[in-house]
């Protein structure tokens, strides 16, 4: 559906996007994850034809976004980071303007406008000036604009930025809903969001792709050890000693005393071992009751840090091993 080949953008010496290669498949919701300044917006601007690339191409259904721009652009609905709305127009007026801009035939305009208004639940504000509606509605008007003309592809640049928690949840609902009949690419720096919404994730940092995979696979691929949080009543030293005797345990650390008389521990163990059963019986043997035990999967947050922040370290290790 969308093919990105060798996409590069340079501003003088600064490389905003560096040889990006990926595809967006039909019907999927693809997450585009990276810290601020990683090149997410730049990449999206190139994919939508707003900005040409320094090198590389973007194909939308085999149409080049630069050479066949008029045809290719019709296939994309794009929501930039700040909703591109005229504040001095009413919602309906604005959507009518967008219809004309996107070359929707006269007969289909009213139908398109009411479809967008219905889909994004804008009935209450459709005759109000955009300057007077709340940020959440404005963001929705931005999305409504994108689905005018029913493009197959939606490209959304940080659609939940600046919304309050309730609006964020509503926005995610909407995106999931739209995902049923659109191919969606969504950028974000919030891992939780991507994790919830997306079928696949692309992680980029400093203009380079760090990983492409499903959220689940990413967690699996990266967790070389599993982690347990424990709360046990009893003597600290003795408990640590006992835990360390269990095969597979890599390290034990004390988090502190949260409930009186008990301590919280963090236990790291190899993924091949499930130490929970053994832990339970061993603790019972020495007479220290476990009052809480929780298995912690690696969060996307940690994956992200491992892939981006700690990448340098792993490279260095790799080099040493080579020697």
């Amino acid at each position: 559906m969308i093919e990105v080949k060798g996409l590069t953008k340079r501003y003088g010496n600064l490389v905003a996007a560096d040889n990006l290669n990926f595809t967006v498949k039909n019907g999927e919701i693809l997450g585009f994850l990276g810290p601020n300044g990683a090149g997410k917006s730049t990449t999206m601007k190139m994919m939508t034809g707003f900005m040409p690339s320094t090198e590389g191409t973007v194909l939308i259904d085999n149409l080049d976004i630069i050479d066949d721009d008029r045809k290719a652009k019709k296939k994309i609905g794009y929501v930039p980071e700040h909703p591109p709305v005229y504040r001095d127009m009413t919602v309906t007026e604005y959507l009518r303007f967008v219809c004309e801009l996107k070359e929707i035939p006269k007969k289909e305009r009213n139908e398109n406008i009411s479809y967008a208004i219905d889909r994004l639940q804008l009935q209450d504000v459709k005759d109000r000036l955009i300057r007077n509606v709340s940020k959440g509605y404005r963001q929705r008007v931005g999305l409504a604009q994108a689905i005018i003309g029913r493009p197959e592809i939606l490209i959304l640049d940080e659609p939940t930025v600046g919304l309050d928690p309730k609006q964020i949840i509503e926005m995610r609902e909407l995106i999931r809903e739209l995902g049923k009949d659109h191919t969606i690419m969504i950028s974000s720096h919030i891992l939780f969001e991507i994790n919830q919404l997306c079928d696949r994730v692309i992680i980029i940092d400093k203009g380079k792709i760090v990983a492409i995979d499903s959220p689940e696979n990413l967690s699996k691929r990266l967790s070389t050890s599993s982690r347990l949080s424990l709360r046990v009543i009893g003597e600290k030293e003795k408990i640590i000693e006992t835990i360390k005797e269990i095969p597979g345990v890599q390290s034990v650390s004390v988090e502190g005393e949260i409930e009186q008389g008990s301590y919280d521990y963090n236990v790291l163990a190899g993924t091949d071992y499930d130490i929970r059963k053994r832990l339970f019986f061993d603790m019972a043997k020495v007479g220290y009751p476990i009052i809480e035990m929780k298995k912690n999967e690696l969060t996307l947050e940690e994956i992200f840090l491992q892939l981006t922040g700690l990448e340098v370290e792993s490279n260095e290790k790799g080099e040493k091993e080579d020697e």
Partner: peptide, 9 residues
């Protein structure tokens, strides 16, 4: 808003 205008035909 130019991002809307120039991503339209």
């Amino acid at each position: 808003i130019d991002q809307l205008l120039f991503t339209s035909p």
